[in-house]
Design a protein around this nucleic acid. Sequence first.
DNA 1: CGACACTTTGAAGACGATCAACGCCGGTGG
DNA 2: CCACCGGCGTTGATCGTCTTCAAAGTGTCG
Lengths: 250, 250
Amino acid sequence: MALSIKNYSSTIKALSLFNGFTESEKEALIKDGYIQNYPRDHYLFHHSDSLNFFYIICDGIVKLFRTNIDGNEKTIDILTAGNTICKIEIFERSEVHTASAVAIKDTVVMKLPKTWLTENAKKSNTFALNLLWAIAKKYSSKEIEVEQQATMSAPQLVSCFLQKLCSLHNFELRDFELPYSKALIASRLGIEVETFSRTLAKLRDNGIIVNGSHVCIKDLAAAHDYACDHCFDEENCPTHQFLVKNLLRK
Amino acid sequence: MALSIKNYSSTIKALSLFNGFTESEKEALIKDGYIQNYPRDHYLFHHSDSLNFFYIICDGIVKLFRTNIDGNEKTIDILTAGNTICKIEIFERSEVHTASAVAIKDTVVMKLPKTWLTENAKKSNTFALNLLWAIAKKYSSKEIEVEQQATMSAPQLVSCFLQKLCSLHNFELRDFELPYSKALIASRLGIEVETFSRTLAKLRDNGIIVNGSHVCIKDLAAAHDYACDHCFDEENCPTHQFLVKNLLRK
DNA sequence: CGACACTTTGAAGACGATCAACGCCGGTGG
DNA sequence: CCACCGGCGTTGATCGTCTTCAAAGTGTCG
C-alpha cells in the first residue's frame, strides 16, 4: 500500500473541517501530517494511552470501543474513510484516550499532533467554526442513537441499520453486501450476536432478506414502517430522512 | 419574582462560555439578553417550533424531552441554573427545535437571539473555543450515558444517579432530598416508575436508604462498588471520579 | 482435508415493561 | 371538620424480550 500523502489528499481535503479554505490553504494545513498504515487488528491506540494525535481516516475501517473489567466490550463507533478520531477528546482537554481504537481491516490514517487541532482552532475562526459544526453534528447523532436504543426493539434497530447502510451505498441498489462482520454490527447496535442472528430471520417477513452477508431490501417502505413505528421524530429519524430525501421526493 | 437582569448576572457571568472575558466584556455580551419567567409546566418551546433563541437558565429546572407518536416521552436532560439550552442545535444549523422544553418549577431564563451565539463565535475566537469545550464535554457525558444505559442494570443506574446527586449537593451530606419527582428521575434514567420504585427497595440492602424523597447513603464505598461493578473505565466513570476526588483523597 | 473463525439454532433464565389495584397525602368544597 | 378527589408512589402478577450457555452448522484458507 503506497503511503504517499498524494493518494489520499483528495479524501482529506474533502473533509468538512476544511470547508471555506482554498486549495493551497488546505495543502498548507495538512503538510505536517504523516500517513501511517495500520494492518488489520492493529491498535491505533489503547484506552488510557496518552492522547497525542488527531487522526484522519484515509482508507479502511476503525472500531472505537471500550472494555470493562469483565472483558465486556461496547462498540462506540465504526469509522471509515473521511471520518476523524479524537477531535472531541482533544477539545475536552483530556490527557489520555478514553477509548480504544483498532483497525478492522487494513487502514491508512493521517496523524497530526493534537496541538495542530487546537492551534488551528485558535488561529482560524473558520477552522473553529467547522469544528463546532462537526462536533454539534456528532452530538446530535449520538442523542438520536440513545433514543433509538432506548425505545426501539432489536428488529427495529437492525432494520434501521440496514436501511441506513442501503442509503449510504446507493439508494437504488437494494442489494448490497454487509461491510463488516455480523459480530461487529451486533456490537455496534448494542445487542448480542445471537439476538442479531435471530432478528434477521424475523425481518424476512418484513421484506428484508439477508443471506450470509448479502442483503436485499424488497420493500423499503414496509421495512421503514416496521423500523419506525415508534420513532419520535420523523424530521430527525435517519431512516425517515433517508426516505424523504431519496424515495418520497421522486 | 423580580425579572431584573441584576439578580442573575452573577450566575450568567460564571458560565464557562464567558471564560477569558473581562467583567465589562461580559456585561457587553449579555446586555441584549432579556430575562423571562416561565411558570411551572409552561413550555419554553415545543418540538418542531422554529429555533430562534439561545437560553441560559438563571433559576429553576427545565426538562428537555421528546415525544413519539404513541405519546411516549423520553427525557433527554434535566437542566438547572447555569445550564444553557440550544447551543448544539444552533451550531448544527437546525431551523427547528428537535425537542421540547418545559419548566418543572418556576424558571427564569435569559434569552438571546440565536445569531448572538453564531455572531460571537465568528467575532471572538475565545468565545468559539469556549463553545467547543462546552459541546465536547456535553458529547462525552452523553457517550458515558449511552454506555451506562447499555451495560448497567436498573439498580446500578439508580445507585449511580443517587451518588452523583449526593456529590453535587455536598459530599459530606449523605442525607439529602431528591430535587425532583421520582417520575422525572425514572424518565431521565430511561426506566419505568414501577421499576424505579422496586429498585429503591433493593438498594436498601446496599446501603442506600430512600424514604419518601429523603435519601441517605450509609455506605458510600459499598454503594459505589455495587453501582460500578461493570464500569468500563474508572477514569471516566462519574461515580468513580467523584469518589476519587472526594473520598479517597482524604 | 482439516483447522479455525464466524454464524446459526435451541433451551433456559433474568430482567424490565405492562396492567391493575391499592395506599398515601394535600387540596378543595360542602 | 369531614368527605371527596387527584396526583403520586408502591406493590403484585404476568408477559415479552433479550441474554446466556451450549452445541451444531457453515465457510474459508492454509
